[in-house]
C-alpha cells in the first residue's frame, strides 16, 4: 500500500532524508528505530505533508496514488494517519468539535453521508474507553493542559476514531508509564487488521513486545541501513547502535 523509493528531502540547504526506501503491505507492522537525529520524524512529517520540508528526489505511492502530490488533508482523507511525537495544544478548539469536523470532512471526501450525532457520540465513548482516556473531551480544548501521557493517548484515540489505512506512530511510547504503554499498545493491537498497516517509530524494544512487528528497520543518517525481524530490536537493545555504525563504516570502506 505504501511504496517509498529513493526519497530525498530536507530543509533549506540541509538534506535530512538521503535516499529512503520502504515497502509496506496491507496488514504489516513495520518498526523504525535509529539514533536521535537520524531523520525518523522528518520521514513521518514528509509523509504527512508538512510543507516545511522540500522533497528533492524520489517518489511515494500510497494506495497506488502519488502521495507527494496531495495536500495534508487529502492524505488524511485517503487514510494516512500520523500520531505526532509532539502533539500540539490548540486552545479554544474543543476536542469534540475538532473530531466532528475531521470525521465530517473525511466522510464527505469519500462521498459518505454525515454521521448521525448519536452514532458519533457512541463511537467517541467506545474509543475513549479503548485507550482509557479519561479527560472530558467536550469541555476541553485539543491537548490543552493534557499531561504528556494523555496527549499520547489522545493521538491513539484519534486514530481509533478515524480508522486509518496506514498509521505512523512517532514515539508514541515515550513519556508513557508502564500501564499506559500497555493500554496504548492494546489500542493499536485492537486496530490491527488485514487491510491496515502500521509504521511504529520507537527507541525502545519494550513497545515491540506489545506491538509485535513484522519488520524492524534501523534508520541512520537519512536512510534505512539495516532491516530484520523483531529479533533485530532485541539485538539493538543489547548492543546499541555502534556496531551498526561500525559495520556501515566497513561497508563504506570496502
Amino acid at each position: 500500500m505504501l511504496s517509498i523509493k529513493n526519497l530525498k528531502a530536507g530543509i533549506e540547504d540541509k538534506e535530512i532524508l538521503k535516499g529512503f526506501n520502504l515497502e509496506v503491505k496491507a496488514g504489516e507492522v513495520h518498526a523504525i528505530m535509529g539514533p536521535n537525529g537520524s531523520g525518523k520524524s522528518t520521514l513521518a512529517s514528509v509523509l504527512a505533508g508538512r510543507e516545511d520540508y522540500a522533497v528533492t528526489d524520489g517518489s511515494v505511492q500510497f494506495l497506488k496514488k502519488d502521495l507527494l502530490e496531495m495536500s495534508p488533508e487529502d492524505r488524511a482523507r485517503e487514510g494516512l494517519f500520523l500520531a505526532f511525537q509532539y502533539p500540539v495544544e490548540i486552545p479554544g478548539v474543543s476536542n469534540i468539535n475538532f473530531l466532528k469536523t475531521a470525521l465530517a470532512e473525511i466522510r464527505q471526501y469519500k462521498g459518505l453521508p454525515p454521521m448521525e450525532a448519536k452514532d458519533f457520540l457512541k463511537r467517541v465513548k467506545e474509543k475513549q474507553a479503548l485507550v482509557e482516556l479519561q479527560v472530558s473531551l467536550a469541555n476541553r480544548s485539543v491537548n490543552e493542559g493534557f499531561s504528556g501521557g494523555e496527549k499520547k493517548r489522545n493521538e491513539i484515540f484519534q486514530m481509533a476514531m478515524l480508522e486509518p489505512v496506514l498509521a505512523i506512530l512517532d514515539e508514541t511510547d515515550s513519556g508513557l508509564d508502564i500501564d499506559a504503554l500497555r493500554i496504548v499498545a492494546n489500542g493499536v493491537n485492537k486496530l490491527r487488521a488485514p487491510e491496515r498497516a502500521f509504521i511504529v517509530i520507537t527507541h525502545y524494544q519494550r513497545l515491540l513486545e506489545y506491538i509485535v512487528p513484522d519488520f524492524v528497520h534501523v534508520m541512520y543518517n537519512g536512510r534505512i541501513v539495516k532491516s530484520g525481524t523483531k529479533e533485530l530490536a532485541l539485538e539493538l537493545e543489547e548492543k546499541g547502535y555502534d556496531w551498526i555504525k561500525k559495520e556501515l563504516g566497513e561497508t563504506i570502506e570496502a
Partner: peptide
C-alpha cells in the same frame, strides 16, 4: 503548527483556519 495538526486529521486548510480564528 496547529494548522498542520488539524489538516493532518483531514480538515481542509480553510476550515482549519476558521476553527483557529473562532478559537482565537
Amino acid at each position: 503548527e496547529a494548522l498542520f495538526y488539524l489538516r493532518a486529521r483531514g480538515i481542509s486548510a480553510d476550515s482549519a483556519r476558521i476553527l483557529l480564528m473562532q478559537a482565537f
